[in-house]
Design a protein around this nucleic acid. Sequence first.
DNA 1: ACCACGACCTGCACGC
DNA 2: TGCGTGCAGGTCGTGG
Length: 270
Amino acid sequence: MPELPEVEVTRQGIAPHLLDQVVSQVVVREPRLRWPVSDRIQDLVGQRVRSVSRRAKYLLLETEAGVLILHLGMSGSLRVLNPAPPPGKHDHLDLVLDSGAVLRLNDPRRFGAAIWWQLPLEAQPLLAKLGPEPLTLAFNVDHLATRLKGKKGAIKTALMDNHVVVGVGNIYANEALFAAGIHPKRAAGNVSRARLGKLVEEVKRVLARAIEQGGTTLKDFTQADGKPGYFVQQLNVYGRGGLPCNTCGTELREIKLGQRATVYCPHCQS
DNA sequence: ACCACGACCTGCACGC
DNA sequence: TGCGTGCAGGTCGTGG
C-alpha cells in the first residue's frame, strides 16, 4: 500500500477536483472490500464535498450528510478521470461528480475500504485510537519515549504500530531507522532518548521528502493523474537486501521481523 | 496488557 | 508452457 506519503499525494491530487463538487452518482461494482460497502453509500448522491482530508492512511471526504472514509489497503489507488473510460478490472467504485469528472477506486487485492459514516468522526472505531500524525508537533521525542518505555518488542514493529504513530509503513520504517542509525531489532524501550529524537526527526524528514517526490511507486501506486511516484529512487535500504550500503558499502542484510521484510546495514545501524 | 500470528485477496516472479 | 510456492506498500482479530 500506499503508506502515508502516497495517501497524502493522492489527497492533494484529488482534492481540487472534488472540493465543492456535488456527487451525482455513486457506482459500486464490487462491494466486497475489506468490509462490505454499505448500500447507504448512496446517501452521498446530491451531497456537496466540503473537504478532502486525511487521518493516518484514511482519506476523508466530508459532506453535510456524512463522511466517506476511504482506505487504499495494500494495492489501492484513486484516480480522477474526465472523461472516464469504461471501467477495467478491479475498478470497484466510482463517484461521479456534477463536473463530469469521476473519482475511481481501483484495488486488486481488495484490502481497501469505503465506509460511509454519518456520526461524529470521533466515534468511528477505526479512527478513535490512532496515534499522532507524524508530521505534526504532537509526534515528538516526549511522546515517543513515553509510548516506548519498557517495551521489549523491536523498535521497527513499534514504529509501525498505529497506536504509537500513524502512517509509517514498512518502506518508511526501514528507511527512517537506517537514517537514524538504529538497528530495527533493538528493543523499543532500550533506545536512548537522544536516538529517539533523531528517529523522530528522520521519520518526519523521510515522509516529507517522499511526499515532495510524489510517493514511492513499486507497482500499483499511481498519483491521481496516473503518474507514478519517484521516491523509489531515493530508497537506501528497502528492497536493497544484499546490495552495498549507500553510506559505507557494507552488504545490506535482510531479515523477517513481524512477518515483514526488514533491511538494514549491519555497520551503520546499531 | 502485551505479543505473535493468521486472515483477508490478487498478481507476479521464480524455480522446476 | 504450465504449475506450485512465496512474496508484496496494511491492519484487524484471535489466542496464548
